[in-house]
Simulated assay, not measured.
Amino acid sequence: MTNPKQNAQRPARTEIDAVFVRIAQAMASLGVSPLPRNYALFYEALSGRNPDLARELSALGPSPDAAKIDELGIRHNLASHATLSADKVQAQAVKLLGDVSVAMREATNRKTGFVRQLQDFALRLENDPVVAMSDFADATQAIRDQAAALLRDEASFSGRLTETVAQLSSMEGDIDALRAAATRDPSTGLPNRTAFSARLSALFLDAPPPTALVLVSLNGLRGVGERYGVDALEKALKKLAPIFRKSIKKNDFVGRIGLDELAFLFSDVSAANAEAIVSRIRASIEAIDIPLPERSFTPERLSLSAGIAMTDAASGEADLFSQAELALHAVKASGHPGQLVFSAAVGARSPRLYSPHAA
């Protein structure tokens, strides 16, 4: 028999946990393959983030076809389906260009035949100047008909080529949308972890100016999601996103790389400059009221912890990220919001996570 006292001591399942349980149960009951892109699609549908997707997914009924599920992900521009979308666009472009190539080849063959017909007629006139009038009339009529047919073909091909160019231009827009979906966080509109990884990888290709990597943790945001649901978390992120955008200049970068984590790259700054920038961001974040359901008069306040690492003290991208991560861990371990610039002393306190060459 279940012990009520034990049940009371058991922690309540959070809404976020419940969403993941619902995803697993829904996919299992419908017989959907446990592919990462399917998990991402079901999360979008069942978390309440995309009601239209939820309705369309439900309309597929029991045992939905895998191709139909993929079509939903492509139509809603989910980042998880960006590769499938790109493959589809590429296949369409290849087909269009192939069709145009065939049409051009056929048009060229017809033109070549027409030129040969003219050459044959000219040769007959050279060899036999006194061609019978009936032969001359027949030949000229055939040439005239062939010329008219070529003009019609040219007009048709021109129209087809114009249509193909328009379709390819539309595909270019689709590709831009795919690129945005694959590299943007849907909640904030900021670049996502994929975009951050690409930017970080490019950082050491040339000799970069002194650049600060800042890893940020939004303290309290995860708790908002756990206590009040995904919708409250999403609204909080949307309210905070403009602050992050305004904190960077032209050559800087900010992206959301986790549930409550962001990454900044500040170009051409010193460690002291980076600390000053982070201090301003912290003050802005901590001054924001986060509205919560059924708590109109007692909004939530978040705080910010940050780890800072400088490119001139790192041997490469992995080393830079590790340093910033260790500095962030040190701040969070202190139990107080704040920021910390990585140093050899910070690395020495984390020997199992940090390689000596990075000091």
Rank of each mutant, 00 (worst) to 15 (best):
D231Y: 08
G225D: 01
N219V: 02
L218A: 03
A236Y: 02
K239N: 13
L215V: 05
G225Y: 00
F204L: 08
R222P: 05
L218R: 00
A232F: 07
E226Y: 05
E226S: 02
P209M: 03
S201V: 11
A207K: 11
D206Q: 09
R199Q: 04
D231A: 15
D206E: 08
K239S: 14
G223C: 07
Y228C: 01
L200W: 11
V224F: 07
R222S: 05
G225E: 06
R222M: 09
L237C: 12
P208V: 05
D231M: 12
R199V: 09
E234Q: 07
G229W: 00
P210G: 11
P208R: 01
S217Q: 04
K238F: 10
K235H: 07
D231E: 13
S217T: 02
G220T: 11
L215C: 01
K235R: 14
R222D: 04
F204M: 06
N219M: 03
V224W: 03
R227S: 09
F204V: 08
Y228N: 01
L233F: 11
S217C: 00
V216D: 01
E234P: 00
G220M: 14
L233H: 15
V230P: 08
P210H: 13
L205V: 15
L213C: 15
D231T: 15
L200F: 12
L215I: 08
D231L: 13
A236M: 02
R199Y: 05
E234C: 08
L218C: 04
K235P: 05
V214P: 10
L213S: 11
D231K: 14
P210T: 13
L213K: 13
A212E: 00
K235N: 09
S217M: 03
L215M: 10
N219Q: 06
L200M: 12
G229A: 00
P210Y: 09
K239H: 13
L200G: 11
V216K: 01
D206H: 06
V230H: 15
P208L: 00
L218M: 10
P209I: 07
L215F: 03
S201A: 15
E234A: 09
L203F: 09
D206M: 00
L237A: 12
R199C: 05
V230S: 11
R227V: 03
P210F: 09
P210L: 12
L203D: 08
L205W: 10
E234K: 06
R222N: 06
A232G: 04
G225T: 00
P208N: 02
L218H: 07
L237H: 13
R222Q: 07
G220L: 12
L203W: 09
G223T: 14
G229V: 03
E226A: 04
A212P: 02
P210C: 13
K239I: 11
R222H: 06
A207V: 11
T211V: 13
G220E: 12
P210D: 13
D206V: 03
L203M: 10
K238E: 15
V214S: 03
